[in-house]
Design a protein around this nucleic acid. Structure first.
Lengths: 144, 144
DNA sequence: TGAAGAAAAGTGCATATACACTTAGATGAG
DNA sequence: CTCATCTAAGTGTATATGCACTTTTCTTCA
């Protein structure tokens, strides 16, 4: 490599690029941590959001996860294939598909949780609870 | 919809999920803004980082953009196809591929910049410069 | 100088992301 | 009751993401 390519940084300027870059970096860390259970952080998050008493329609889940409904539909495929979630048509409205985490999914989450915790601690170790709260507030402002 | 599905929020707890969710939301906004020029924010960012005097090897560019090299290799494909960037083997090291933005790419960026600015302003409108600086600092801490 | 090792980049594979459009089912106005 | 409309979800298409592995080229050292 012949010279130093450091270039005046659009990374710092563009809010979107800053967020995306950080998200990618942090995602790699969580994915690596979760590797032993064969989950990535997206799948872990989806399963985590299903740890609730009732089943949830796809649209509602997508809304809560802040992703496009059609993305979630496809993200559910690998989880269904592995029997970690179950989807059933709603008895009263045949258009609606309700998603539930399976027993197998719950079991896997028990093994996954401590792995997640390691990545989470590594991520938040340089930041105080107060800073984290502030950070979350700014994040909300940026997305609204 | 039969009840209120608000569920105690892993979204708030998991740093990775918080980042990813925000990144997705903000990405959709920038993508919508850039639609008239047929770029998405990832492509816009790549082109922006090429607005420099010299060409750049793929690895260096990937490092600067904070993405996997193999991801960048593939992200360059649509840009090359449209003639917005050019890649040439390095004269001194045949392994190396140097990327340059084309004149056409520069032209397109001139049209894209004001569109980017709209999304950027919308994103940062609720946040002060000082808050943004703080936010950037926290972001760095989270990724390190 | 020739072979071992390093380094740059590409490929195979699996998954993620979302817009535009389609399909199937529910619902409400006349 | 029926048809127009709405709504929940799936599909087509294109791009993004990155790990594991491969290929090509360069470098180093014995």
């Amino acid at each position: 490599m012949k010279r130093d390519y450091t270039y005046s940084d659009f990374n710092t300027l563009c809010a979107c690029q800053a967020l995306r870059k950080s998200a990618r970096t942090v995602t790699r860390r969580y994915n690596a941590a979760l590797k032993p259970v064969g989950l990535n952080i997206g799948q872990f998050t989806t399963l985590a959001s299903l740890l609730r008493p009732d089943s949830v329609p796809i649209s509602v889940l997508a809304e809560q996860l802040g992703m496009d409904r059609t993305t979630l539909t496809r993200d559910l495929k690998p989880l269904e294939r592995r029997g970690l979630v179950v989807s059933l048509s709603d008895a009263e409205d045949a258009r609606q598909r309700n998603i539930t985490i399976s027993d197998r999914g719950r079991e896997l989450m028990k093994r996954a949780a401590p792995l997640w915790e390691i990545a989470q601690e590594k991520t938040k170790k340089n930041i105080s609870d107060e800073q984290w709260t502030d950070f979350r507030a700014e994040l909300t402002k940026l997305t609204h």
